[in-house]
Design a protein around this nucleic acid. Structure first.
Lengths: 226, 226
DNA sequence: ATTATAACATGATAAATGTCATAGTTATAG
DNA sequence: CTATAACTATGACATTTATCATGTTATAAT
C-alpha cells in the first residue's frame, strides 16, 4: 500500500490539515484506482459513500441532457476532491465524473471524512472553503452564461484552460479536449464551437495545430472575453 | 434586545444546532436591521465581516452586468443566512443583496460564527450542508440555462416561485417581482419575458391579474418545463 | 494496409432571442 | 389630485445560435 504521507497531492487538498495519526488512518482506509481516458469514476445517480482524491490526470464533472448532450460543469485535476458535495448532502451524485486523460484516484470512505471533519477544525474549514470556492465559480459561470455571448465564453474558456492546465512544449494547450467537450464547457453546439475556433484561427487569436489549440494573442483574447 | 431563543426563524437555519449558552452568546452579539423594499443589505465588493440571518421579508442576491442588467442568482426568505460564502472564503461579497419585500435581518459577526463552527460539530455540518445545497442548486441552474429554452425556464421559475413562496388569497403568486426581476432570474431580456407571459396568458397556463401572476394550469406548466 | 469509426469542418437554413421604437398603464411624489 | 416616473405591453427587425446536410481528415481495429 502506498503511504499517504509521501503523496504530494495530499498537500493540495483539504487533506493537508491532517496530522500524522490521521494520515496513517487515511492510508489504511483508502483504495487506489486507475481510470482510463473515457471511463467513469462514478455516474449521475450513483451513491458513492466517500470522496475521490485525484492523484493524477484530468477529469470532468458533467450531466447528460435529454437531447444527448453532455454539459460539463467543472474540470478537475491533481489535488482536488471529487464527490464532497453529494457525500455531505447525503445524496446520490448529481453529476457524472469521467476521465479526460488517464487518471489515478484514491477513494476515501465517508466514515473517515466525517471523522476528520468532526475532530479537526482546520480540515473542516478547508473542506468548507473548497465547497465555497466551487460555489463562487459556479455562480460566476452562471452569470457568464447569461451575460456573455458564445464568442466571449469561448475566449474566456480558452484563457481559463491555459491558466489552469498550462501548455505543452509546442505551446499548445495541455488539456486535450475534443471540440464536443469544449462545446460542453461553454454551453453551445459542437458546430458553433468549431466555427468560432475557425474564426479565431483566421483572426490569428489562436492557431489550430491538428486537434490541438495554441493561444497566439492572449491580450486580444482577454479583450474579447470582457 | 430581542432574545434569539424565542426567534422561530433560528430553527430554520444552521443556527438550530446551537445550545443554550451559544444562543445567549448569539443574542448578545447580534444587531437587528430593517431594510425597506429596494434597499441593499450589502453590495458587491463590500466586506461584510459576518452573516445576515433573514428574519422576515424576501431578498435577492444579484450581480450587475456591464450592460446594466441585474442577473439574479438566488432569492432568499426567512430562515436563510446571507453572506456565508464570502465570510468563509475571506473575500468581499461577490453579489449584492437587496430587499424585494421589506425585510428584517440580524447581523451576526464573523467571530461568533467561526467560534460556533469550531466548537459545535452539528453547526459546522449544518452550515456545510447549506452551502452544499446552494452549490447543487447553482449547478442545476447552470445546466438549465444551457439545456432549456427561455420558455421552459420561465415555466420552471413560475413553478419554483409558487412552491417556494406560496400564493395569496386570490391565488396569485406571493412574491411580487417586477417583469424585469423575473427576467433577471431566468436570464433573458425583459421584453422577452413579458412576451412569453402574454403567450402563457393566452394559452391559459397563467392569468395576469394586473402585475400579479396566477398559475392556472400547473400540470401543463410542468410539462412545458421538461 | 485497409476499412470502419469518430472527430473535425463548413455551408445553408431555421429558430430563438435580443434590441429598438413606441404607446398604454399604474404607481408615487409633491 | 395632478404630473412625472416607472412599469407593462407589443410590433418590427436584427442578430445570434442551433440544426441539418455533407464532406474531409484523423484514429483505431482487424
Amino acid at each position: 500500500m502506498n503511504k499517504c504521507d509521501q503523496c504530494i497531492v495530499r498537500q493540495l487538498s483539504s487533506l493537508k490539515a491532517l496530522n500524522k495519526d490521521e494520515v496513517v488512518k487515511l492510508a489504511n482506509s483508502k483504495t487506489t484506482y486507475t481510470i482510463k481516458k473515457g471511463e467513469a469514476i462514478f455516474e449521475e445517480g450513483e451513491v458513492t459513500n466517500g470522496v475521490f482524491c485525484v492523484k493524477d490526470g484530468v477529469g470532468k464533472l458533467s450531466k447528460l441532457s435529454a437531447n444527448g448532450k453532455d454539459q460539463i460543469v467543472k474540470l478537475v485535476k491533481s489535488g482536488e476532491l471529487l464527490g464532497q458535495r453529494s457525500m455531505i448532502s447525503n445524496e446520490p451524485a448529481n453529476l457524472s465524473a469521467k476521465a479526460i486523460a488517464d487518471m489515478e484516484v484514491c477513494f476515501i470512505p465517508k466514515s473517515e471524512i466525517i471523522h476528520f471533519f468532526n475532530n479537526n477544525n482546520q480540515f473542516s474549514l478547508n473542506l468548507m472553503q473548497s465547497v465555497c470556492e466551487d460555489l463562487k465559480e459556479s455562480e460566476n459561470d452562471k452569470i457568464a452564461l447569461v451575460q456573455k455571448t458564445v464568442k466571449q465564453r469561448l475566449a474566456e474558456t480558452l484563457l481559463h484552460l491555459h491558466n489552469e492546465f498550462g501548455e505543452n512544449a509546442d505551446k499548445t494547450l495541455k488539456v486535450q479536449l475534443t471540440r464536443e467537450e469544449l462545446a460542453g464547457i461553454i454551453g453551445t453546439a459542437t458546430e458553433s464551437c468549431i466555427r468560432l475556433l475557425s474564426d479565431f484561427n483566421k483572426l490569428e487569436l489562436i492557431e489550430l495545430v491538428g486537434k490541438k489549440i495554441m493561444l497566439k494573442n492572449i491580450k486580444a483574447l482577454k479583450r474579447m472575453a470582457e
